Amino acid sequence: MAGTELGEFLRGRRGRVSPEDVGLTSYGTRRVPGLRREELAQLAGISVTYYTRLEQGQSRHASEAIVEALARALGLDDDERAHLHDLARPAPAKPRRRPRPAVVRDGTRRLITALGDVPAVVLGVRNEVLAWNRPGHLLLAGHLDFGTPDRPGERPNLTRMLFLDPHHRDLHVRWQEEAARAVASLRLVAGRHADDRELAELIGELTMRSPEFAALWAKHPVATCVSGTKHFRHPEVGELVLGFEALLLADDPGQRILMYTAEPGSPSEAALRLLTVGAAVTPAGPPASVPPRGPAPRSGRA
Rank of each mutant, 00 (worst) to 15 (best):
L202E: 13
F244Q: 05
A200H: 14
P253S: 00
C225K: 15
V222Y: 13
F232N: 06
R256E: 04
E178D: 11
V226S: 14
P235L: 08
H234Y: 14
E236K: 13
R181F: 00
V222R: 11
A250C: 04
A214L: 01
H193F: 13
E201L: 14
R181K: 13
S210W: 07
V237P: 02
K230M: 09
C225W: 10
R169I: 02
D251Q: 10
I257W: 04
G238P: 02
R209C: 09
A218K: 12
H167C: 13
R181C: 03
D195H: 09
R233K: 08
R233L: 09
A190G: 10
E239A: 13
K230A: 07
L216E: 09
A223Y: 08
H220M: 15
H167V: 12
V183K: 01
P211I: 12
V222K: 12
E245M: 01
E201Q: 15
V226A: 14
A215T: 07
H231V: 07
E178W: 01
L186P: 01
E212C: 02
D251A: 12
H167D: 15
R192A: 12
E177S: 08
G243Y: 07
E201D: 15
G204I: 07
R169M: 06
H231M: 11
T229K: 14
P221K: 05
A184E: 03
A218S: 12
V241A: 08
H231D: 11
L248D: 13
I203H: 04
H168A: 06
L186W: 10
A200K: 10
E178T: 10
K219R: 15
E198D: 15
I257H: 02
D252Q: 14
G204H: 08
R187T: 08
L206Y: 08
V226P: 00
A218M: 05
T229A: 09
F213N: 02
A184Y: 03
A214W: 01
R209I: 06
E245I: 00
G228L: 09
G204K: 05
D196H: 05
F213Y: 12
H168Y: 05
R181M: 10
A179L: 06
D251P: 00
